[in-house]
Write a protein that binds this DNA or RNA. Structure first.
Lengths: 300, 300
DNA sequence: AGAATAGTGTCTTTTAGACACTATAGT
DNA sequence: ACTATAGTGTCTAAAAGACACTATTCT
């Protein structure tokens, strides 16, 4: 190719003289919201255990935010994609490989890391809790699964002459035994004929490191949105599961109860019955199902 | 705070001695897929004009990809978010401000820019075509609206013993008068009990710069997805519009025809009738509508 | 027997799809 | 009068919601 630019350079000459140091550059982290669903202790021999949505947090062993709880993550290297970096961190942190991993959003607020300019390419992972064994990585002196609750506290909606403004205030609660982290997250949307904007802000970090409360809120909203029109929830299930278990997973993610008959109708194409049954409780055994790959609908 | 890490440093001491040069860093670009909808020439005094979905491209005036068509964009600066950088570029490129702007996805494939390590935080903007006047920026010797068509060519679906594999092949066509860019984009999804992955790849760039065919494909898929459950399409409309025009916008984005009665039922809560009418054609005048802010549903 | 869960049948309500019909401007 | 579009009414089909009923296991 012999094209020359306004300085008379060919592409090869241009690339040879190009100095990447001309622009200031951010560090790029890949942080991860790793979801799993775990059983509570069963109350009696009769009752089935309930499900809880959990997120993996690590207790930071280094500055900044020393001893605070944070999402697992690490820096992206030049020869890998952000997704590969996330998968690498996931493997190091939990030992699992090949699970569902999706890029969420890239957080770029200046000052979000006190060290230096760091943007975070946030990911969401869904893992079957029977597969994971948590282990602490380099940066962490401790890692633990926190039970998650994310509830809308207040919704404020103002109709303007030529647009609207909405504020949603959420409480994000993460609990592991005695340790309870309670963060407040706000989503603001405004829209007029001549302006539009959306902000997602942490008003109270609840002792979570960085802007990680915001990232977790973003992840749970994405998960709630996707569960109703894709089959991502099946990535949280073991190989064999009952339909009641699957329904419990949907319920704990959406934080609302579903009707049994309607639920079974809706997820019917996503699962396939086996000829095996549970044998645990003091009640009628439940048929075990597995994923139906023909009905899959993982599209993004 | 007097917490000390394993080297005995407080947070202040740690930050004072921290060297950001320890890690290699990427440049971060904010690239933008700017959508608008324009009218074709009307065939006769009777016929209404048709709508076309358009994307703004700039012809590169510098290496790399000199003289190739590319998405507008620029580098993110340390004191701004990626969204602010995109808004800044949008203002410079089109003169518009305060339009709908949404972060799409961050592209991080190593080698996607021949100069150096550059990740692209891609955004999507929706602008009302009556507001924009295109002007070339620094990097561009020319900017133009390209008509867009994005069609599924082939769908390949393989059911494995323990999972599935799907390949979707799309043709992305961008045309501005004689200039036609025809790119091929592939989306691959595989999923098994022990592995999961998704790739989005350009198999033929059709003379588009960088991985921009992929970014455009990602944007059109997001737009198609969002149009059915939010009111983002209204950001493409002028202050007053007819329901037929709005339906045409939906049709050109989804690339399929809709039934008039059903469409009107569905978008009824999003619009508000005015007492004004069109006066253009040789047929019954059409009532003009405006956006109904009460019915808004811009949530992400 | 009784408790707890599994699983199905069916009625109602809502939503989407299909299509025909009436209405009204300009030439 | 004719053409092209505007706008509505209504029937049908499909999906979602609600709820009751039967089935089956272990203690």
């Amino acid at each position: 190719m012999e094209l020359r630019d306004k300085n008379g350079l060919t592409e090869q000459e241009f690339l040879a003289q190009y100095h990447p140091e001309d622009y200031e550059r951010p560090s790029m982290a890949a942080d991860m919201v790793i979801f799993t669903v775990m059983n509570t202790e069963r109350e009696s021999f009769r009752k089935l255990p309930e499900k809880e949505l959990c997120v993996l947090l690590i207790r930071r062993g280094a500055h900044p935010y020393l001893r605070r709880w944070a999402l697992p993550g690490g820096f992206v290297r030049p020869n890998e994609t952000a997704g590969q970096a996330a998968a690498r961190e996931l493997r190091e942190e939990t030992g699992v490989e090949g699970v569902y991993l999706e890029q969420l959003y890239t957080f770029t607020q200046p000052g979000r890391d006190p060290r230096t300019w760091v943007v975070s390419c946030a990911h969401m992972a869904l893992v079957d809790s029977t597969l994971v064994r948590v282990r602490a990585g380099d940066d962490a002196d401790h890692a633990a699964w926190f039970r998650l609750s994310y509830r809308l506290l207040q919704e404020e909606s103002t109709v303007l002459a030529d647009g609207f403004r909405k504020v949603f205030r959420y409480c994000l609660e993460l609990a592991d035994g005695d340790v309870v982290l309670r963060a407040k997250v706000e989503r603001r949307i405004y829209s007029t004929r001549t302006d539009w904007g959306e902000e997602f802000a942490v008003t109270d970090s609840g002792d979570l490191a960085f802007d990680h409360a915001q990232i977790i809120a973003c992840a749970i909203e994405r998960l709630r949105g996707k569960i109703s029109y894709t089959d991502v929830a099946l990535h949280l299930m073991p190989a064999l599961f009952t339909l009641t278990e699957l329904q419990q997973v949907y319920e704990v993610i959406l934080d609302k109860e579903l009707l049994k008959a309607a639920f079974r109708r809706k997820i019917a194409p996503l699962v396939k019955e086996t000829d095996r049954f549970t044998e645990d409780g003091a009640h009628r055994p439940s048929r075990l199902y597995r994923r139906n790959w023909e009905g899959s609908n993982d599209a993004v």
